[in-house]
């Protein structure tokens, strides 16, 4: 693997996570429980779309074949996307969205914080900028998790079920491959083993505050966990997300918009 290959793969993965969770957030527009949360949700989605654009542009530069942000977003088939399965799961209700956001961003923020100090200057800059955005998201979502967990009996029950639904997808965050190894070794990138421990400590502390039980499944127990996103083996839901998003670019090849 060349330096450019590994870095490009890594940057694309980050971009795919950002775009796909952003797209899921966009699907929630005009369906939030209160008007003020519409503004919050749109801010989060805008941050993610912005991150995806920066990451894709950089991936295109690393590749050096003239591909730009929209080529990566609109002209790759679903199996070429390398996002985590968690971010592509359908939205469900508000509690589902909050749980997914908390679990993913608790990882993503740690990842970005490490990358902000990595050896690649461009990636470090993008990460440093994203850290500011995701810190706020995670704070907002964490407070919501506490309110829902420690709110009414109904909200507690609902969000407990959300947690059970999404928990199994978290293992994939820490299931590194040779690209992750390379980034850690050659680029001073995140140590996924160390991240897993911090993630678990942070999430458990938050769940305790939210009066929510920690789900039984052991994250290391691979039979329970769900992975495959980074091999392009997605869930059935994903093809629809991609088909909808890419519709115009696919229907009118080569057109400018």
């Amino acid at each position: 693997m060349t330096v450019e290959d590994a870095l490009q793969s890594y940057v694309l993965r980050l971009g795919d996570n950002a775009l796909v969770i952003g797209q899921r957030m966009i699907e929630r527009v005009a369906g939030e429980p209160e008007l003020e949360e519409e503004l919050a949700n749109a801010n989060f989605a805008l941050d993610y779309i912005g991150q995806a654009r920066m990451l894709y542009s950089y991936a295109g530069e690393l590749e050096g074949k003239g591909r730009g942000e929209d080529d990566f977003a609109y002209l790759r088939d679903s199996q070429e996307f390398r996002n985590f399965l968690m971010v592509e799961q359908p939205n469900g209700h508000f509690g589902d969205a909050i749980v997914r956001q908390v679990l993913f961003e608790s990882f993503y923020l740690l990842q970005l914080e490490q990358l902000a100090d990595c050896a690649d200057t461009r990636l470090a800059e993008i990460a440093a900028r994203a850290v500011k955005e995701i810190s706020y998201h995670l704070r907002h979502a964490s407070q919501w998790l506490i309110r829902l967990g420690d709110g009414t009996d109904e909200s507690h029950q609902r969000v407990k079920e959300s947690l059970e639904r999404y928990w199994r997808y978290a293992a994939e965050f820490f299931d590194g491959d040779d690209v992750d190894d390379w980034i850690q070794r050659e680029c001073n990138g995140p140590d996924l083993g160390a991240l897993a421990k911090t993630w678990r400590d942070n999430v458990e502390a938050l769940l305790e505050q939210a009066t929510l039980p920690i789900p039984d499944d052991n994250l290391d127990q691979t039979s329970f966990s769900r992975a495959g996103g980074r091999q392009g083996n997605h869930s059935e839901y994903f093809g629809f997300l991609i088909a909808e998003m890419q519709h115009l670019q696919r229907a009118f090849p080569g057109a400018n918009w």
Partner: peptide, 20 residues
């Protein structure tokens, strides 16, 4: 102004609404 259930939420809502 904004509506919020508690003080912390009010700050978040103010941030998301009025400092875009």
């Amino acid at each position: 102004s904004v509506h919020a259930a508690d003080d912390q939420m009010a700050l978040d809502h103010a941030r998301d609404t009025y400092t875009r």
